[in-house]
Design a binder for these strands. Structure first.
Lengths: 146, 146
DNA sequence: ATTTTTGCAAACCTTTTGCATGGAA
DNA sequence: TTCCATGCAAAAGGTTTGCAAAAAT
């Protein structure tokens, strides 16, 4: 967990100052592989006695979203959550149980989108696909632990 | 605009009471073919001197969402919006300029989703695809009127 | 030294809730 | 007449902002 953190790297690559709070947020996120809400992150920070004000936390999340190392997504419940991810186009596959998010390559989505464009006459500029289900691990554990 | 309104129908089919506010919301939505936020709908109601309290408006939107005649979606900006739609699985193609939303049939998305499931090992329970672009009409009007 | 970032606290915006009143069936 | 739905107003979230102090370059 010590060592290169892609988020830290993105910050310095972007010319942003490396501050305590930002580093803390970066580490918090890096040590977390599911999606998380701002509130959850705040709680995690408090538990580890990292003192980050809410405003700073939101500002950091905004920044990281802009840098593309984190993406904001909308859960089916309407909650806003964030997932760490590589700054490239991809889709998110989210486990409804453990919250783990996996980046998904295209797998034919682009083609389908092209077909939709053709049929509708729209010029499609962007699309967002969010997939929800159970990861392999959680399927195996049937409905055991929380 | 007088006559059958699918929203009104869905309400009565669902066994809900047909009240003034609900009818007003139904008409407001039916007379609007783009997406809209709760705030926009509230404004529209006020302009037409329809007196609907905010609480009622939100309650109506919830109800209509449950009935599946309206769907809540998340714009790229993070705003919550609603679109009127048929109660079946489909995707939304949204014009970034005029806000009009079109329901889109599958066009190969299901296959792509299947492929993603196969490769990832996830059991995919649901997915949501939102497409953003310019409708034919707005493409034609290049960048003219708002 | 300069510029960015932070923390605080208040403001804001959106959505929800409790409860008494009013309206549909 | 009996429930369901509404309005109000307050509360509850979630997120943003202004500004002075603190920290990074």
């Amino acid at each position: 967990m010590i060592g290169s953190n892609p988020i830290v790297e993105a910050l310095s690559a972007g010319g942003y100052r490396m501050t305590g709070p930002r580093r803390a947020v970066a580490d918090l996120i890096a040590g977390h592989d599911g999606h998380f809400t701002a509130a959850e992150l705040e709680l995690a920070a408090r538990e580890r006695r990292l003192d980050i004000s809410r405003a700073t936390l939101f500002r950091a999340l905004d920044l990281l979203t802009e840098l593309g190392v984190v993406e904001r997504l909308d859960l089916p419940t309407g909650e806003h959550a964030y997932v760490p991810c590589a700054p490239a186009h991809h889709h998110h596959l989210i486990c409804s149980r453990c919250g783990r998010a996996t980046d998904v390559a295209d797998c034919g989505v682009a083609e389908a989108v092209g077909e939709i464009a053709r049929r509708s006459g729209y010029r499609i500029d962007s699309h967002r696909l969010e997939l929800f289900g159970l990861c392999r691990h959680c399927q195996a554990k049937t409905t055991t632990d929380a």
